[in-house]
Amino acid sequence: MKRNEAATADVATTDASRDTPRKPCVRDRIFDTACDLFYKQGIRGVGVDAIANEAGTNKMSFYRSFSSKDELVAEYLRDSERDFWLWWDGVMAAHEGNPRAQCEALFAASPCDTNMRGCPMANAAVEIREEDHPALMVVRVHKTEIRARFRALAHQMQAHDPDVLGDGLMLLMSGSVQSRLIFPCDGGPAVNAGAAARSLLDAHLKKCV
């Protein structure tokens, strides 16, 4: 084969390989499967065998990829946390400089679909009992940050009692998300979370006038 023909063939092969979707590695399959099962069935309801079988692998491959189920749970929650803050920061950026609009947008933009099973962090907190569980620290840090951010928004709005308002907003968001475990998106109390948030903001901000 001539040099330019060989080069052309190499380029074609490279282009074809780029167009072909890469098969997920074993670790990725295990992780993606575990995330789905943990969210739908609960952390305690899913064992290593079930995760390995569903991922099309075995326990040996599982423990090559993750040191323990507890560590996998912690990673599952860290991944959920990253998604949450990407969503939060996107909402914030759309209303930069207007804390009230940012706050209202958080409730207006709260995602909801038929597959929602509440907040992964809150669900994990209910199931985890061991104080030294690596996932519990992930939950505590995440919820503490949400509380701090809502309080910061309340301070920016110059509320009469910003810490009370911030905590109230956090409770409202947490409650509306968890209510989706029981009620459908289009008919449960979560549909009124935005209106409730506006009423709460009005009540606290009027005291500043």
Rank of each mutant, 00 (worst) to 15 (best):
E75W: 02
L172A: 08
E96T: 15
S174M: 12
M116V: 11
C103Q: 04
V126Y: 09
A159T: 09
F66D: 01
A135T: 03
R129G: 09
Y76C: 06
R78V: 00
T114Y: 09
S67G: 13
S174N: 14
P99W: 05
H133K: 03
C119P: 06
A93R: 13
A101M: 12
E81R: 15
E81G: 08
Y76V: 02
M121P: 02
L171D: 10
V138E: 09
W88M: 08
E130C: 07
D113P: 07
V139L: 03
V141R: 13
H142L: 09
A124V: 08
R82Y: 03
F107I: 09
L106M: 15
K143G: 07
A159P: 05
E104A: 11
S80K: 13
K69A: 02
V138A: 03
D167I: 01
H133M: 07
L72W: 06
L86K: 13
M137A: 15
R117G: 00
R117W: 02
L172M: 08
G175Q: 07
D89M: 11
E130R: 13
M137V: 12
Q156L: 15
G168M: 09
D89T: 11
P111R: 03
A105H: 07
L86G: 09
T144I: 01
P120E: 04
L172N: 04
E127N: 03
L106K: 00
L72N: 05
